[in-house]
């Protein structure tokens, strides 16, 4: 988990609603959440990420914990700083094999997450979350409008790649109470250490 350097309050971007999907790449690269230490993966998904149990059961078909395929999120306990990646059902023999609890799980036995008992940890821990494919499509706007913590360098790179139309209306970037233009924002982000975290929140306008 990178050190969180306080970027002035938060970064709020006003964007046209149709531009929101351009930010999904941030969800795929990963954002950070703070959860109770020792929480099970199931608890993280339902209580901290807010997925309904039915979504965890049916829609989230593939779960990785630090690259290991998880079959049962109830019995998986992430360590602090772990990466949790979530995907809808994926095609192919490999896609089928990687699904949680699938009949073909044997294909990837060596990278299957080995369940371990819950640790007795106090306090909080940070996890990196990645949302892929249909999950980003279906839940991305919720996360982005509520706010996600992303690494400053990754955010800067993504924003630098965006075309001018994303930035309209002009001057609608708010850092704390301050309004910034795109170039000034990129400069400010670039001044932060590469692993600093920024709280990004989108507000959408019609169009």
């Amino acid at each position: 988990m990178p050190n969180s350097i306080p970027f002035p309050q938060s970064l709020e971007l006003r964007v046209a609603a149709r531009m929101v999907p351009r930010f999904f790449t941030l969800l795929r690269q990963g954002f950070w959440i703070r959860v109770e230490a020792g929480a099970s993966l199931q608890y993280v998904l339902t209580h901290f990420l807010g997925f309904p149990s039915s979504v965890v059961q049916d829609r989230i078909q593939t779960i990785f914990l630090d690259g290991n395929a998880v079959d049962d999120p109830e019995s998986a306990y992430p360590d602090p700083g772990a990466t949790v990646a979530l995907s809808a059902a994926a095609p192919g023999l490999a896609g089928a094999g990687l699904r949680k609890g699938g009949a073909l799980a044997g294909l990837r036995g060596s990278i299957t997450f080995s369940a371990s008992p819950a640790g007795h940890q106090d306090g909080a821990m940070d996890l990196r979350i990645r949302l892929y494919n249909l999950l980003a499509e279906e839940w991305g706007e919720v996360f982005l409008t509520e706010g996600i913590k992303v690494e400053a360098e990754e955010l800067r790179a993504v924003l630098a790649d965006m075309s001018a139309e994303v930035w309209a209306p002009e001057g609608a970037v708010r850092v704390g109470g301050e309004r910034l233009g795109p170039e000034a924002l990129l400069q400010r982000l670039g001044e932060l250490s590469s692993d600093a975290l920024v709280l990004l929140r989108l507000t959408t306008v019609s169009g």
Binding site: G67, A89, A90, P91, G95, I111, L134
Partner: peptide
């Protein structure tokens, strides 16, 4: 969900992020 939604939305290349995440 694969044949009715995922394939149409992303094609087979939906696998890139998934397989990369798995380390395979």
């Amino acid at each position: 969900p694969v044949t009715g939604q995922g394939m149409a939305a992303y094609g087979t290349n939906v696998l890139t992020n998934v397989i990369n995440e798995s380390g395979a």
